[in-house]
Simulated scan of single mutants.
Amino acid sequence: MRNNVFVSEGTGGYAFKNPTAGLSFDHNAFYGIDMTRPNPGGVTEDPQLRDDFRLGAGSPALAAGAVVENNGGRDWFGNRLRPGAPNIGAYAGHGVR
């Protein structure tokens, strides 16, 4: 799994303790989640998600993702993906206020 945002703001917590064997993670944002598997290039700070899944200005997930070949060229919102490191998550634009 690559370039995804996982957030838990509840009091019960959530953990990725025993995911499917062979499943690997990299360049994901895990916030409020106990991640026990390696996640190279990932972030654990608040990704500052807005209600529509855009990233806030100053988000550590901005330009922190891994380049994915044959990525379709657009994000969830239809924005063109820029060259270079993408954002982590479904939004490819600049951070919003």
Rank of each mutant, 00 (worst) to 15 (best):
N28Q: 02
F6W: 08
G42F: 01
R37T: 08
N28Y: 03
P60V: 08
G56Q: 10
D52N: 14
Q48C: 07
V7M: 06
M35V: 10
G41T: 01
Y14P: 15
V67R: 06
P38N: 01
Y14C: 15
G10S: 14
A29S: 14
L23K: 01
Y31T: 00
A61M: 04
G13C: 13
S59W: 04
V5M: 01
G13A: 13
N39A: 02
V7T: 13
F53N: 15
P47E: 03
D34C: 02
F53P: 04
D26V: 01
L62T: 08
L23F: 04
F30K: 05
N18W: 10
D46E: 04
A61T: 00
D26N: 14
A61G: 07
S59Y: 03
S59G: 11
F16K: 04
D51P: 15
G41K: 00
K17E: 12
T20D: 10
G56T: 09
G58F: 08
A66W: 05
A29M: 04
P40Q: 02
T11H: 14
F25I: 06
A15V: 13
A66L: 05
P38A: 07
H27R: 07
A57N: 09
F6G: 09
T36H: 12
F6A: 10
T36Q: 10
I33H: 08
M35K: 11
Q48F: 04
I33F: 03
F6T: 04
T44H: 02
G65V: 00
L55N: 03
A63I: 03
A57F: 08
G13H: 14
G56C: 07
P60M: 09
H27A: 08
A61V: 01
A21L: 11
V67T: 09
P19S: 11
M35N: 11
G10F: 06
G10L: 06
F6N: 08
R50V: 02
A61E: 06
P60N: 11
R37F: 06
L49V: 09
